[in-house]
Simulated assay, not measured.
Amino acid sequence: MGAPRGNDPVLTGRLRLTPVVVEHVGELERLYADPLVARWTGPWTPDAVREWTQGMARRWAEDGVGKWMAHDRLRGTLVGRGGLSRTVLGGEAVLEVGWVVRDELTGRGYASEIGRAALGWAATFFPELPVVAYTEVHNRASVAVMRRLGLHSAGVIHREGLVEGRPGLHAEAPFALYRQVLTMISHLV
């Protein structure tokens, strides 16, 4: 068996993670129709889901990295999606880790499982790129996942998103930024 390739499925204790491809549109439409998922990521129209899916498939082809579909390893049922995206943040090339889990499956550790898989994948295939995560400051569940993954607070950034207590999207919403801190250990010889 050869070395793993970046687009090979990733297996965790409970999940099979496979790169998003255009054939996943139907599953993604179902995922983004969940009320809690839609609250943080939507609203999504069928055209928007199709466009996002096509874009993610292109990112895998062009960038060698992207989001995965997350399925239960035993039953094959949809759990969510997550993984990494290559982006530029404050002029620095980074990998952004993120996740979305079906409403009925939240609170069971799936987001952390997807995040841990993504951090391991990044260390294998893109060790030179820092990993960050961000979410609206009031998304306490995602902030808790970031902390469980060992990411450290790196301040607040502003981008389009939700503002607690105010309806709709806002151009300069505050997002909690977390970053992976890699400790370099040197040995004296």
Rank of each mutant, 00 (worst) to 15 (best):
R81T: 07
R81C: 15
L105N: 02
G66V: 07
L95W: 00
D103W: 07
L36T: 10
L74R: 15
E104Y: 06
W52Y: 09
W99A: 03
R102P: 00
V37Q: 04
L84M: 01
G64M: 03
G42Q: 06
G55A: 13
L95E: 00
T41Y: 04
M56G: 12
G107S: 07
V49T: 08
V97T: 12
W60K: 13
V101M: 04
G91Y: 13
L36F: 04
R86S: 04
A70Y: 00
E104A: 12
G91V: 10
R50N: 05
L105P: 01
T77K: 15
G98S: 01
G76M: 14
L78Q: 10
D72E: 05
V65M: 11
G107W: 15
A93K: 15
R73Y: 04
L105K: 09
G107C: 13
E104F: 11
V65L: 06
V100P: 03
P46I: 15
G91K: 10
T77M: 08
V94K: 07
G55R: 06
W40A: 00
V65R: 13
W52K: 09
W44D: 02
R73Q: 07
W40Q: 01
R75G: 14
E92C: 14
G91E: 04
L78G: 08
A93C: 10
L89P: 08
A57Y: 03
P43F: 11
D63K: 11
G55M: 03
W99N: 10
V49S: 11
W99G: 02
A38G: 10
M56Y: 06
A57G: 10
R58I: 08
A61K: 14
W40N: 03
L89H: 07
R75V: 09
L84Q: 02
T106M: 12
W44E: 05
W52A: 12
M69P: 08
V97Q: 04
V88H: 11
A38H: 14
L95P: 05
T53R: 12
